[in-house]
Each structure stands twice: as structure tokens, then as C-alpha cells.
Amino acid sequence: MSNGMKLILLIAELVTVGSALIVAINPNILYSAVFLLFAFLGVAVMYLFAGADFLAGVQIVVYVGGVTILILFAIMLTQWLYRLKLKDIGSKFVIPGVVLALGLVPFLHRGLTELGKMIQATPPEKMAEFAASPKTQAIGKALLGTHVLPFEAITILLLGALVGAVWLARPRT
């Protein structure tokens, strides 16, 4: 992979982390939702560079085009846009939140280094071949072949979620 491509990946990772930081700490929920969109886009680019072309498309269609718009829609339905009640940092859990989140760092760091040692064995040329091959056909065959049971379970789940969401948000009678 050329240095230019690696630079694009690095920028995508920095955008993801920076946007996630704004999502977590910005007191205005509307800005948080907008920056969540950039975090999702950064994750989609990371998927592309990890050889998951189909997943990058799904990420953009479902998350950027669906979930973020749904969240913005819900924010605008439930709040006055410029009302100061939007600002909601300062709950009583701020200090436990910081402690718990930072307490996870040593465990994650340890896990990262151990996994880094474990991964060395995979041959790089096999990895490059996997990353360069298109995945859509293989995923389609897997969904209707070896993974047909989880696929059907997901369809039932989506139907249930659809009916349940419509029932929950029905107009007052």
C-alpha cells in the first residue's frame, strides 16, 4: 500500500476519534449528533481499508443515511432547537464516568499489546490478497448458504422492530 493511501487511512482514523470525542463531550446534543455522522463516515473509510468494501457501503447507507437522520429527526421533534435545555452535561455520573472510562485504558492497552504479538504469524501477502478482493459476491453466497439461519433470524428481528416501533410511536387515541 502506498504512503498516500496510508495517509488517507490515518486521516480517517483521526477524524473518527476526533468526532467521537466531540460526540461524547459536547454539551449540545444537536452538535453531537452531527459529529456522529462524521465518526460513522470515518469508520466506513476504515472498513474500506480493511478490505470490507460491502460493509463500507452498508455502513454509509444504514448509519449515515438512516440512523443519523433518524436521531436528528428525533432531536428536532422533541426539543426546541435553540433551547438551553439541550445542554445536558453535568449529571451526577460525570466523575464515575471519567473514572470508569479511564480505568478501562490499562486493560485495553494490555490486550492490544498481547494481540499485537499474536497477530505477527499471519503472512502479509495473504492479508493483502484478502484486502484487495471484492467481497459482495462472497457475502451474498454466505448469507444464503452457510449463514442462512442468522440471516433469517435478523429478518424476523427487523420485522418485529418495525412493527414495534410503529406501535410505540402511534398517535394518541
Binding site: 476519534v17 467521537a20 461524547a24 446534543i29 428525533a74 445536558d88 464515575p96 470508569l100 478501562l104 485495553l108
Partner: peptide
Amino acid sequence: SVLLILGIFAVLTRKNAIGILLGVEL
């Protein structure tokens, strides 16, 4: 890992229900 930590932080500190949902998405 950073996304996980920031998501947990958002879930714990937001009072707004939609803010909690943003953390879960992260």
C-alpha cells in the same frame, strides 16, 4: 478502544436519552 471508552463516557454522563443512544452507537 477510544470509541468504546468515549461511548461508555457518553452513556454514563448524558442526562438526555438521545445522548445515551449516541453513546450506544459509538
